[in-house]
């Protein structure tokens, strides 16, 4: 025993390195556990408050662009005030409550931290559980899809940006009504990739990609991007399409968190179908 201790002491630098490195690797491997642990309450509290204060200072430099964007968004919304209602059939149902049939509820949030440099990019927002924000809510801005909420604390939430290797969004070529999967393969933060689009459809550059509405998370018809390069490898049955993101993910200011009020119901139903098989 004495010899072992003496050995460890002699090489204490190496052993301490081993311990710390393994601790770091455990943190990486158990990300999901770590996120739900007590630790995140402390870390989110500290980092959230500092980032929030800092963004309070820096956001003044973006006010002009932000205003223009919001004004444009307002015009668009005025033109389609009933779009968020799943039922507008006033003949069979007496609509006394204009909130009837609303499926999506929007919460305004401010981006207080955002990265585009990493392989897995995350965005921090200044709204959390206290404001009714939970996992698996969609995040969009006036231009298009931004990401999905992955974890929350009382006052803050982390959003998995579409610029993340774990991000998979069901997308649709709007003109053709054909579905594919939107992923990000790294590199430029302006360009995403649409895969799983069958090779027989005639896709063109300039086609719009929007959300399909099949995902329980995103509402239908939120812009994702416009097709840029179309590639079809010999022998492949699916296209690999490079597209430009609709939202400028590098200069996010104000975003909307979208809650699907039927999410639970939809998930239950899909689960039943899968169970019955």
């Amino acid at each position: 025993m004495r010899h072992i201790l003496a050995f460890i002491w002699k090489y204490n630098f190496f052993f301490l390195f081993l311990v710390l490195e393994v601790a770091a690797l455990i943190l990486i491997a158990n990300t999901s556990y770590y996120q739900s642990a007590v630790l995140n309450r402390i870390t989110y509290g500290v980092s959230g408050n500092i980032l929030n204060t800092w963004s309070g200072i820096t956001s003044y430099f973006r006010l002009r662009d932000e205003n223009l964007q919001l004004a444009a968004d307002n015009i668009r919304l005025r033109q389609q005030l009933t779009r968020n209602q799943s039922s507008t059939d006033t003949l069979s149902v007496a609509v006394t409550d204009t909130a009837t049939g609303i499926q999506y509820r929007y919460t305004l949030a401010k981006v207080i931290s955002n990265s585009t440099n990493r392989r897995d990019n995350y965005i921090m927002l200044n709204k959390g559980r206290k404001h009714g924000i939970n996992r698996d809510m969609a995040v969009i801005n006036a231009d298009g899809v931004v990401g999905t909420v992955v974890s929350t604390s009382d006052n803050f939430s982390w959003v998995m940006s579409v610029l993340n290797k774990h991000s998979k969004i069901s997308g649709r070529i709007n003109r053709l009504n054909q579905m594919g999967t939107v992923v990000w393969q790294g590199g430029s933060p302006m360009m995403g990739t649409l895969t799983d689009l069958p090779a027989h459809v005639k896709v063109k550059t300039g086609d719009t990609i929007t959300t399909s509405g099949f995902s329980h998370i995103f509402p239908e018809n939120i812009p994702i991007g416009t097709v840029r390069h179309i590639a079809l490898n010999k022998g492949d049955h699916f296209y690999t399409i490079q597209f430009n993101f609709a939202a400028d993910l590098n200069s996010l200011g104000t975003v909307y968190i979208v809650k699907n009020l039927y999410q639970h119901e939809q998930q239950e139903l899909s689960k039943q179908v899968i169970d019955e098989k």
Binding site: F14, L20, I28, S113, D120, Y122
Partner: peptide, 19 residues
């Protein structure tokens, strides 16, 4: 790491750099 939601990544890399 705690400021960029990159749990453990920068920790592992920094410890290695120190080593």
């Amino acid at each position: 790491d705690i400021f960029s939601h990159s749990t453990g990544l920068h920790t592992a890399a920094s410890v290695f750099a120190a080593f």
